[in-house]
Design a protein around this nucleic acid. Structure first.
Lengths: 247, 247
DNA sequence: GAAACTGGTATGAAAAACATACCAGTTTCG
DNA sequence: CGAAACTGGTATGTTTTTCATACCAGTTTC
């Protein structure tokens, strides 16, 4: 039975995910409606329907002239209908295990099959990530695209499908966001090693570079989960709500 | 960017998947419109919009009074927009690589975390597969459930999501169907080894057992692709298109 | 040859999503 | 201060999508 899932419904989920993922943290401000609806690719009318529902759930507060604020709230306040797959609730450890499995599996083929054009693309992504002025959202996006390109380079469409399926977990993991925010330098260094390995065509070396990258994230998780607390650090980045013109 | 995917669009993809999956084979008849729209849970108007598009693509033929027939056609005739369901086109090799990656990754945790109840469930599935009277469709179903249960036993929801995402590839792979059909005995033997490894709790041994299973499939593929030809062997099983009354 | 199917057509209603313009508060900054 | 540039709030009308219903026209079945 094919079910109809209205645009409003899907957008509510999307916004909730962004909040859970730490892109718009508790107490923080949401972008203006005119900006947000552009980002989501929907009309303002439709967006306002979403925001109205979020307001009823007690997730946000709206004040004429001042903007929209994310309230402190519990996940329990959210009706089951909107609780996608609880992406934000899985441990980063689980995500890393899965990603390591997929990416190292892709490594063997990717090291051989990657085209010069694809390598150039990876270089450009790395450049973009190294730019000082880049916002957190764009940094995360570039990181994801980098890893996806490697798998795509393997030519294995099944691996790519699997990777795409687990992307939301990563995207909405507060810890993952935190890692990329605070360990940007480390991330870029690892990516350089991965790219270098790709260029030599040595699949073994590539797999090692990828595993090192994953293990670095794991270590970060151990450190953070030890100190506890909600990790929110924006690091050297500006506000998460970059890109005021929309994408 | 959240895109609007109309119901018509999604239904076209769904119907295409059903055709590719062998539920409605080339030259066969589609159910009547009044039946089909019920199955899909949409109105007849909407369904007819889907069928009109499939007709334009040359996928089906409609004749007043006689019904709708699936034409012989190439996948190339299908616009990219509808091609998400290229499941049948990927090589079984790709599927095996991905499955091996996910299942061995799950092995480490699964060997330790698997509960007695889950082990009993696996035993029952194995029993069912060993039953002489089982049909092909049920055999495939049990096989899938067996492997899924292992990943589920690892407790890693990300791996499980990835596995579920690639299931359709497996389901719509004619070669995979062929393997399970012709090598049922071998499949069962491998499953016994996997279950035994699970019971000992040795993750290493479990991973090896899983890899052996995958490699056996790989060898089968090599043999078959050597002899060429479309492998369709239904073996001793009944028709795949059971459930004539609809679900 | 009637009954029971099949697809083909037409029409009207409801819902969903959109574009647009304008109102009313708040903040920013010259 | 006070205008300009934001913010959310409101209202209106249109387009697109989906649905429900009825009826027409061939084909098959018995």
């Amino acid at each position: 039975m094919l079910k109809r899932d209205s645009l409003v419904n899907r957008c509510v989920k999307e916004i909730l995910s962004m909040i859970f993922g730490g892109l718009y943290p508790s107490g923080g401000k949401l972008p203006g409606e005119r900006v947000l609806c552009c980002k989501l690719g929907i009309s303002r009318t439709t967006l306002r329907e979403c925001l109205a529902r979020l307001r009823e759930m007690g997730v946000i507060e709206q004040h004429q002239g001042r903007g929209t604020r994310v309230k402190r709230f519990s996940r329990r306040m959210i009706p089951a209908d909107y609780r996608q797959s609880d992406y934000g609730e899985v441990a980063l450890d689980e995500i890393i295990v899965a990603r390591a499995a997929l990416e190292t599996a892709a490594a063997e083929q990717a090291a051989r099959r990657m085209t010069p054009a694809a390598l150039r693309h990876l270089g450009k992504l790395l450049e973009r990530m190294s730019d000082e002025g880049i916002g957190l959202a764009d940094f995360i996006k570039a990181d994801m695209e980098f890893h996806r390109a490697i798998i795509q380079g393997s030519g294995n469409r099944v691996l790519l499908t699997a990777f795409d399926a687990i992307r939301p977990f990563h995207k909405y993991s507060q810890l993952a966001t935190s890692y990329l925010s605070n360990e940007a330098r480390s991330t870029i260094a690892h990516h350089h090693r991965i790219l270098a390995a790709l260029k030599t065509g040595q699949s073994r070396r590539l797999a090692t570079a990828i595993l090192d990258h994953m293990n670095d994230m794991k270590r970060y998780v151990r450190r953070k989960s030890g100190s506890g607390g909600t990790v929110n650090g924006r690091g050297a980045y500006g506000p998460a709500t970059s890109d005021p013109k929309g994408t």
